[in-house]
């Protein structure tokens, strides 16, 4: 169950004088069960890239395969592909349209042509997975809080039971607690359902604690594709792309520069606190 991109290019309005080369020669393999952080400055092509993965945008040239099959090959069902590769757009709550939350979540499974019982079962499971309270299933999706709307929208994609879940800036516009909740939810889906996750963001802080693999995009190309710790070694290059390291990494780097023997590639608060505490203990014992 993997996905590959081979030499994928995407050029918008190709035959005019304002053509944009949005993706340049992208080669990529997405393996089962990975948690990938896709990072880049606004306009770097990351949203364009993820829309290629479920066949919403057709590459100008190059090959995209899902389980070894060309997704633009003869007889390939792209509608079915969209059930396997779930894409949650930016501000997904803007796509809610039904009279009640439950019906909205049913929309995806119905489109997959499942029978009523299976549809409702999936919708129920999906709303549960995102932690949406049972008693609000009948509420209008336009009258619940912003954070809840986002959960419902994510459930709407989860209900299709995708193998790969792609989320484009899922925390945009939420308050700190809301951001944390959503990230925790995504991490749980990955851990418990071993779902492949692609988390698109422009904030390293969001992905640093969760992603096992980091893909950094710049001007339509992949600049780095590696473990986070390795990627974060290229501080200057990342900053030139308009990206910042996680704040924690900066803190550790500041300490290291001041002569303390600490690991300056740490990315999470827990790691940093442990490292400093053990340093403190070693000096004061």
């Amino acid at each position: 169950m993997s996905m590959t991109l081979e030499h994928v290019n995407c050029i918008y309005s190709a035959d005019t004088n304002h053509s944009v080369h949005a993706l340049k020669d992208i080669c990529l393999t997405i393996n089962d069960g990975e948690f990938i952080g896709l990072i880049g400055h606004t306009g770097c092509g990351k949203s364009t890239l993820v829309q290629h993965l479920n066949g919403l945008i057709r590459p100008t040239d190059g090959l995209i395969t899902y389980n070894g099959q060309d997704i633009y090959g003869k007889g390939f069902n792209r509608k079915e592909l969209r059930g396997h590769v779930g894409l949650v757009f930016q501000y997904p709550e803007h796509q809610l349209f039904e009279n009640d939350v439950f019906s909205d979540v049913c929309f995806g499974p119905i489109n997959l042509g499942l029978d009523r019982k299976e549809v409702e079962l999936r919708a129920y499971e999906a709303l549960h997975a995102v932690g949406f309270p049972d008693e609000d299933f009948e509420s209008s999706p336009f009258e619940i809080s912003g954070g809840q709307k986002r959960r419902v929208a994510i459930a709407g994609v989860l209900a299709m039971k995708p193998d790969i879940l792609i989320l484009d800036e899922p925390t945009a516009g939420l308050d700190p607690k809301g951001r944390e909740d959503i990230l925790e939810l995504i991490s749980r889906l990955h851990r418990e359902n071993s779902m492949t996750i692609i988390l698109v963001s422009h904030s390293m802080d969001d992905v640093a604690g969760y992603a096992e693999r980091l893909i950094v995009m710049d001007h339509g190309s992949i600049a780095y594709d590696d473990k986070p710790q390795e990627v974060f070694k290229n501080v200057r290059e990342l900053e030139a792309m308009g990206l910042a390291l996680p704040e924690v990494t900066y803190i550790m780097r500041t300490l290291k520069r001041n002569g303390y023997d600490v690991d300056d590639t740490l990315t999470t608060i827990d790691e940093a606190v442990d490292a400093i505490v053990s340093l403190y203990k070693s000096r004061h014992s």
């Binding site: 919403l56 969209r82 894409l87 757009f89 995806g108 994609v157 299709m160």
Partner: peptide, 12 residues
């Protein structure tokens, strides 16, 4: 965008 988002949920 909305059209694509609904297509991602299987709309035709």
């Amino acid at each position: 965008i909305i059209m694509k988002a609904q297509m991602a949920r299987g709309a035709d």
